[in-house]
Simulated assay, not measured.
Amino acid sequence: MSDYAKGIDISYNQGNLIDSINTENTDLSFVICKATGGITIQDPDFPHNWEKIPQQGFIRGTYHFYYTNDAPQSQADNFFNVVGNDFPSDALPPVVDFENASIKTSDHAQIIDDLLDFLELLEQKYQRTPIIYTNQSTGDSYLNDSRFAKYPLWVASYASSPKLPSTWSNWSLWQYSESGDINGTAVDEDYFNGNLKDLKQFIRQSSISS
Rank of each mutant, 00 (worst) to 15 (best):
Ser106Asn: 14
Phe87Leu: 03
Leu116Glu: 13
Gln56Phe: 07
Asp45Ser: 13
Ser169Ile: 03
Thr185Met: 10
Phe79Cys: 01
Ile39Pro: 00
Glu99Thr: 07
Val82Phe: 02
Lys52Ser: 11
Ala91Ile: 10
Gly15Ala: 06
Ile8His: 12
Ala71Pro: 00
Gly84Ile: 01
Phe192Ala: 05
Ala5Cys: 14
Lys6Val: 06
Ala186Leu: 12
Thr26Gln: 14
Lys52Met: 15
Gln42Phe: 04
Asp77Glu: 12
Phe80Asn: 07
Val155Asn: 03
Ala109Arg: 15
Asp77Phe: 05
Glu24Cys: 05
Pro165Arg: 08
Trp174Ser: 05
Thr26Ala: 12
Thr134Ser: 13
His108Gln: 15
Gly15His: 03
Val31Arg: 01
Arg147Met: 04
Gln136Thr: 10
Ser179Ala: 11
Ile103Met: 05
Ser207Gly: 04
Gln124Asn: 12
Asp3Cys: 12
Ser146His: 12
Tyr12Val: 01
Leu115Gln: 12
Ile131Thr: 11
Phe148Leu: 11
Phe202Pro: 03
Thr36His: 01
Glu120Ser: 13
Trp50Cys: 02
Ser146Phe: 09
Tyr12Ile: 00
Pro152Val: 10
Tyr126Arg: 05
Leu164Val: 07
Phe58Pro: 03
Pro47Trp: 02
Glu123Met: 12
Tyr176His: 15
Ile103Ala: 06
Asn170Asp: 15
Tyr126Lys: 01
Trp154Asp: 03
His64Asn: 11
Phe65Val: 03
Leu196Met: 04
Cys33Arg: 02
Phe87Pro: 01
Tyr126Val: 02
Ser74Asn: 08
Asp190Trp: 08
Leu164Cys: 09
Pro88Asp: 09
Pro162Thr: 10
Gly61Pro: 14
Asp188Gly: 10
Ala149Leu: 05
Lys200Phe: 02
Asn135Ser: 10
Ala35Thr: 03
Asp107Glu: 15
Asp86Tyr: 09
Asn85Leu: 00
Ile18Glu: 07
Glu178Val: 00
Glu189Gln: 13
Thr62Tyr: 10
Thr62His: 08
Ile208Asn: 14
Phe118Cys: 01
Gln201Glu: 13
Thr129Ala: 06
Ile39Val: 12
Val155Pro: 05
Gln205Val: 01
Ile32Lys: 01
Gly7Phe: 14
Ala159Val: 00
Asp117Trp: 02
Pro162Cys: 12
Ala5Ile: 12
Thr105Gln: 09
Val96Trp: 02
Ala159His: 15
Pro88Glu: 06
